[in-house]
Design a protein around this nucleic acid. Structure first.
Lengths: 300, 300
DNA sequence: CAAATCTAGGAAAACGCTTTCCTTAATTTA
DNA sequence: TAAATTAAGGAAAGCGTTTTCCTAGATTTG
């Protein structure tokens, strides 16, 4: 008792390593994301950090570049360092990792996608969101609608956004023109390249739905360089609602949602899981909405 | 010996906490940055992570919002968790923290700024860079040159960039017009607001040097909304060379440097320090260069 | 072949805490 | 006041490693 007092008065700092070893608890949350740079993930991190800090947890960030080998590597590292739980933003989610997770049964939450099985998750409804965006395009009178989709079908959100696109077209009785759906990387430059491919065709679409805002910005950029105008010549629809989307001209119409909220929800529930509480629902799907701005034209 | 073999064959994972306690070494690098979102810091993180991974270190990222109390808080946390070293990107660097660092003599590297005393650092020469940019503006025929500078003089890089601006003007025999140097936050919106203040004057400058690209983008955005054209009506010069600077139209002229390189250099040298090797030089100043693009007009 | 050298493996101590157990002192109860 | 209950502080064990030290056996040397 008075020993404790004395400790406080001296500037005594407990050794967290020793404490964690004794308590068999690390107060560490592992966070795996593909990259800090390219997407909406900075908001995600912000959200995660915010609530983990609130609950006295530390976070350890690992950048996987989306590669399975890195994911496996860091998963092992997190276990070595006795992380209490893991938040996993994995676009490509290979069975190897899933197996690892199931076997070790370390608390783990999937973020940005859903496997609708044993691994809990928090994400948005990409299919519906994309469906709504493309339906909006159709309502504005567009029928020649292309898509700049993500390259790999393994990328869950990318594929789901394509599914939503396809569903909207199909429902409207429009057949998909294969020349207008282009696979594309995640950078702005990739968007430019993909847009060029679309423009190479004789018949070009009046509207393009893009899998991400960065791609959309790249596409707009290419159109500008080519002397085509958005939205007069081509309408563009983005996805993610990054802050640049409202800065560029014309302002980009896009699907918005809060990555920060996703991060906060994930961290909150991961900590629940760690404490042995139950997480309900096991799969959170957070809201999205259409932010319709200037990059889409009404076709009479 | 054969016990070790057996351990390897079973999928045995050593407990890093126990190892670290025994070895009195954590293989953890603490990283403090103001924010992931707002600047060039994502590249920094990338660089740091890259080399720390190379050397078998883990990094722990803390977001300080640039606030002293948070910096102090995380500094303490890093010590508790026995971090082997700390990389500190602190814009406002208060004496409190400096004292802490000196007293604990935990290996620590300052990033993005310089205190030219006991704490080693890696950064760029902000004064010279700003001087060169503004001199370029002058060479292009501008004499009415404003600046959107950062709000707080405590922000080292911000203040240094202002110093460079002032030096260039003074050398050219131009007196600084107080109405044209506006203090400004770090977001794109802040840039818009600051630009509006400049435009409120009767006489507006022909060129604006901005402390960061984000501010510059905000300024351009405001000018666009106001129906003024860049660079015909106002020339804009940015700082940082973020990727968006080459995407927006007109392409932004800006001071470029590699934040990733800064991060890598910092991590490399921190690890040296940890190993007890000497760091030479104690203060690295990394290169910058002018990326002159479209946002500056030649005044006849 | 005996003595000296080397080697491998086991035992024990240490890292700095938490937790459990025990002793002694303080407080309460009849 | 003696017995019973409570409180508080000290001692010891344990967490899973590394490191140091020691012993018994194998190998080399004269």
């Amino acid at each position: 008792m008075r020993v404790l007092k004395a400790m406080e008065q001296t500037n005594f700092l407990p050794n967290a390593m020793a404490r964690n070893l004794a308590k068999n608890k690390s107060y560490l949350l592992g966070v795996m994301i593909p990259d800090v740079k390219n997407t909406v993930l900075d908001d995600l991190i912000n959200g995660i950090n915010h609530v983990s800090e609130l609950y006295g947890y530390n976070t350890m960030l690992s950048l996987t570049s989306g590669m399975l080998e890195n994911e496996l590597h860091y998963f092992k590292k997190f276990r070595e360092i006795q992380a209490d739980g893991i938040i996993l933003a994995s676009e490509y989610l290979k069975e190897d990792l899933v197996e690892n997770i199931k076997q070790t049964n370390i608390p783990c939450i999937l973020v940005g996608r859903d496997r609708s099985d044993t691994i809990p998750s928090v994400h948005i409804d990409n299919i519906t969101a994309a469906y709504e965006a493309v339906t909006y395009l159709i309502q504005q009178g567009h029928r020649k609608i292309g898509m700049l989709r993500l390259r790999n079908e393994d990328i869950a959100s990318g594929y789901q956004r394509y599914q939503g696109y396809a569903k909207a077209l199909t429902e409207a009785g429009i057949t998909i023109n294969r020349d207008w759906v282009i696979e594309c990387g995640v950078s702005v430059e990739d968007g430019m390249i993909a847009m060029r491919r679309i423009c190479a065709a004789t018949d070009i679409p009046t509207a393009i739905f893009c899998a991400t805002d960065r791609i959309a910005i790249g596409a707009m950029n290419y159109l500008f360089e080519r002397g085509l105008s958005v939205p007069s010549d081509v309408s563009i629809y983005g996805f993610d609602g990054i802050d640049m989307s409202s800065i560029i001209r014309p302002k980009l119409s896009t699907v918005k949602y809060s990555a920060r909220e996703i991060g906060m929800t994930a961290a909150r529930n991961l900590i629940k899981l760690i404490k042995g509480e139950t997480m309900t629902p096991r799969h959170w799907v957070l809201p999205h909405y259409l932010e319709n701005r200037e990059s889409v034209r009404l076709l009479k």
